[in-house]
Design a protein around this nucleic acid. Structure first.
Ligand code: FE
Ligand code: FE
Length: 832
DNA sequence: AACAAAAAAAAA
């Protein structure tokens, strides 16, 4: 039989005629790449951890992993694959080649263990790893006959051909087969094999580096090892070498001294291995720097020197990326769906184009030792989505930092808890950052990590606010000795009052900002719904004609919203000129804007959110108008039934909404920060999920249940690897977040020539065919996001499939079907 | 009187 071929795509000769790259060459390349990844990409702590799990030395483990990778495409040695374009195509049975690898390998490798059946034992698990090399684990083959007799694998001559390759590989690598191979380790190693395969499947690299190398494994090994090592380093995949903690750089200057929180991490936090550190602190307390200091200690303690920073929004992720890349010498990737449109990152990517072009590919950014990502990227590792094992592998060599944990809803928390179980199991240290965290959430996440790490009866200690708690995987929790000092650093008092209004909320809001209208100063009015914000804005604008009023919500064109936010920060941010006026906004205001108002008016909301908002009152050290004697938040509420807007928005948290009312009434208007914040948040939000059976609890259990359906199994309850990935479910249905779907509207102004234009002046025409990057960027900047069910059956542009404009709809003349884009109000529904 | 904000769905 002729030597089987392995690759053809992209390898055609200059005249276009097909050329074949021998299978044994591709397998040798992959084996070498895996060995290089093991040596240079894998964190030393991970090498040791894997070796322990496999009960081998790290050196043996590396050989074994190279051997695994060297077998991944052995299933291409089948009649169906090798003869796929011959004339008698229909006479041979075909089978996907990764399935063929899964079926053939367990027998091929001659593992000394004698399992009861094909599907039990280490050999089968090794088969599953190889069968999973396209990102989905193979369905377990429960047929009773011997796999050797599966007709798709071909007759004895095919078996011989596979044995020939296997013998050559084994003779060269001389691998030791493991006697234990736990499922979570197998899943992570599958990720490593996949990355090796990706690296050596680049057609240009094959042609430039490998095409003329000798065919035999032994003969080409040295060359290939050197070539793949160069490639791994070129792609930015080398693991960083540890360095000393550069405190001055982290704190932003040699003269900066750490604050009490940071000092307590320096003094009292001494990890000796993996564990979970939970830090609960107000924003603006230097928690990022605190996390970096802690991460450095954790990296040293676990010999894993990568970092992964996860945040809830693209905007905060972008700014965290800027800070991180300025603080870290190594490459830092940015990962979210719109990262390619973040121009500082595009520019940064041109500094090291070889590495970043590769790392910025789909599912790859987290493979960089340092990455800043939306939390969705992390959660995707815990969903039964294709290639989740690549993400799991990417997590192993890092300290994982999750910021703003308090922003997660029940669904996300459930997935996060599952990811934490896995991180515990994989020995990955984790830092959670949060504002006040309800006790039951803190306990749930800690218990998840500890049980994942193998603690049978964890006794988690909830984090005190402000402060931190460290749960090592063995031993008892550790807290800072100087918590009083940390607390004192944030001490202040504030006033939270409740105004009961009758009649329209616009009137109540207009009334509440009277001092600003009369005597100057600045106020923010935070509304529950966009519609309310628009109405209140109009009312205030018309009631006080001389006063400045700004409107901010999420239903402006993307670039317009960015402009408004920039304006507001330039006025009320750290170095703002603080003009007199009122900002009317929705909850966008509490997202990431570092702004400071003299007073704030807010519709009713759960108390944790109210405190987020209160954080924007008297935030910086600014002069105040005479009428503003203390930081104050006025809450607008009705007597009796909950007001319409808040009841609609927080319909799944009505219990917290009512509890907030009661708690504020019981507490009185004086708030001592931080202790009252902690007390009230716990009073309103802390509970156990199962102790009630009202509608809200049922919904919460439903959401948690939905999360458990799309999440991967608990690492300790994992049977066959097939349950890790759902072959029939596409990535869109396995989502990291639940909730109303949103959609982007792209302005489509119709010109006299009948063509579409992005802008009302008809200067930017829609391009023919596939849109260039510049147009896509302009269209996204002009796009307006709204609930998807508002625009059922709106026109779409088929030319945009496969670009970032896929799944958008056209907004004819920005006035269509009851929706209208108002230059002042943003997207308006109905006839306002 | 029908609803904030937030993210995301292509590899060898
Ligand atoms: Fe393959
Ligand atoms: Fe391959």
């Amino acid at each position: 039989m002729q030597a089987p071929w392995g690759k053809r795509r992209g390898l055609e000769a200059a005249d276009g005629s097909p050329r074949e790259y021998p299978l044994v060459c591709h397998l040798c390349d992959t084996a070498a790449a895996a060995l290089v990844l093991w040596e240079d990409h894998t964190a030393p702590g991970v090498r040791e951890w894997v070796a322990n799990e496999l009960d081998m030395t790290p050196h043996e483990a590396g050989r074994f992993i190279a051997y695994l990778a060297g077998l991944h495409d052995i299933g291409k040695t089948t009649p169906g694959f090798q003869c796929q374009d011959s004339t008698d195509k229909n006479s041979v049975d075909t089978i996907r080649h990764e399935i063929a690898s899964y079926l053939a390998v367990p027998t091929l490798i001659e593992h000394p263990e004698k399992p009861a059946s094909f599907i039990s034992g280490i050999a089968h698990r090794i088969g599953e790893i190889l069968g999973g090399h396209h990102g989905v684990f193979p369905p377990v083959d429960r047929r009773t006959r011997k796999p050797l007799h599966v007709p798709e694998l071909g007759g004895p001559e095919w078996d011989t051909a596979r044995r020939t390759i296997h013998t050559e590989l084994r003779a060269h690598l001389n691998p030791t087969l493991p006697t234990c191979l736990p499922q979570p380790v197998a899943a992570a190693l599958t990720g490593l094999v996949i990355v090796a395969d990706w690296i050596v499947s680049d057609a240009r690299w094959i042609l430039e580096s490998q095409w003329d190398a000798p065919i035999g494994i032994a003969a080409r090994w040295e060359h290939t090892l050197n070539a793949t090592r160069a490639r791994v380093h070129q792609l930015g995949l080398a693991h960083p070498t540890p360095g000393p903690l550069d405190l001055a750089r982290i704190l932003g200057g040699p003269n900066r001294s750490p604050n009490p929180l940071q000092q307590s991490i320096i003094d009292d936090f001494h990890p000796t291995g993996p564990g979970l550190l939970t830090i609960a602190t107000p924003t603006g307390s230097g928690k990022t720097e605190t996390a970096w200091i802690a991460a450095h200690k954790l990296a040293t303690a676990t010999d894993r020197y990568g970092t992964l920073m996860c945040l809830p929004t693209q905007a905060t992720t972008n700014s965290m990326w800027a800070r991180t890349s300025a603080t870290v010498d190594n490459t830092v990737t940015l990962a979210h769906s719109m990262a390619v449109f973040h121009s500082p990152y595009r520019h940064y990517s041109t500094h090291d184009p070889d590495a970043l072009r590769w790392l910025n590919g789909r599912k790859r950014p987290m493979l960089s030792a340092h990455a800043v990502v939306t939390i969705d990227q992390l959660l995707a590792a815990g969903l039964t989505a294709k290639h989740n094992m690549v993400r799991q592998w990417a997590l192993t060599g890092k300290v994982v930092i999750v910021d703003e944990v308090h922003a997660c809803d029940i669904y996300m928390l459930t997935v996060l808890a599952r990811v934490l179980e896995w991180l515990g199991r994989l020995g990955v240290p984790v830092v959670l950052l949060s504002a006040t965290l309800p006790g039951h959430v803190s306990r749930q996440l800690t218990a998840a990590y500890l049980t994942g790490a193998g603690c049978s009866s964890p006794n988690p200690r909830p984090v005190a606010y402000p402060g931190w708690v460290w749960h090592p995987i063995t031993g008892s929790p550790v807290e800072p000795r100087n918590r009083a000092q940390i607390s004192r650093a944030h001490a202040r008092t504030a006033r939270v009052t409740v105004t009961h209004y009758t009649g329209p909320v616009e009137a109540a809001a207009a009334n509440a900002i009277q001092p600003v209208a009369k005597n100057g100063g600045c106020a923010a009015v935070v509304c529950s719904t966009v519609d309310t914000a628009q109405r209140i804005y109009i009312r205030i604008r018309d009631t006080y004609p001389g006063m400045c009023v700004w409107l901010l919500h999420s239903r402006f064109p993307h670039a317009h919203r960015a402009e408004i936010e920039a304006d507001i920060v330039s006025m009320f941010g750290p170095a703002g000129d603080r003009p007199d006026g009122v900002v009317v906004a929705t909850s966008v205001i509490e997202q990431s804007l570092d702004v400071d108002f003299d007073v704030m008016i807010s519709e009713l909301a759960p108390v944790a959110l109210l405190f987020q908002r209160l954080g924007r009152v008297w935030r910086h050290d600014n002069p105040r108008p005479a009428w503003a004697t203390e930081p104050t938040l006025h809450i607008l509420d009705r007597d009796g039934a909950l007001p319409y807007g808040p009841a609609a928005i927080y319909r799944d948290s009505l219990r917290e909404l009512r509890a907030t009312r009661a708690a504020l009434a019981g507490h009185g208007t004086l708030i001592r920060i931080p202790e009252d914040v902690s007390t009230l948040v716990q009073q309103v939000h802390n509970r156990d999920l199962d102790d009630l059976n009202d509608l809200q609890s049922q919904r919460e259990r439903r959401d948690a249940g939905l999360a458990n359906i799309v999440a991967i199994p608990n690492p300790h309850q994992l049977g066959h690897l097939e349950t890790m990935t759902c072959p029939d479910v596409d990535d869109a249905t396995v989502a990291a977040r639940l909730g109303m779907d949103t959609i982007r509207l792209i302005p489509a102004h119709i010109g006299i020539d009948g063509r579409y234009y992005l802008d009302p002046k008809h200067e930017i025409p829609y391009p023919q065919g596939r849109p260039p990057h510049r147009f896509v960027e302009a269209a996204l900047n002009a796009s307006i996001t709204c609930p998807a069910h508002w625009v059922r059956d709106w026109p779409t542009n088929p030319d945009w499939a496969g670009t970032h404009l896929a799944d958008t709809v056209l907004f004819p003349n920005t006035c269509h079907d009851g929706l209208r884009l108002d230059p002042e109000l943003g997207l308006v529904k109905g006839n306002q």
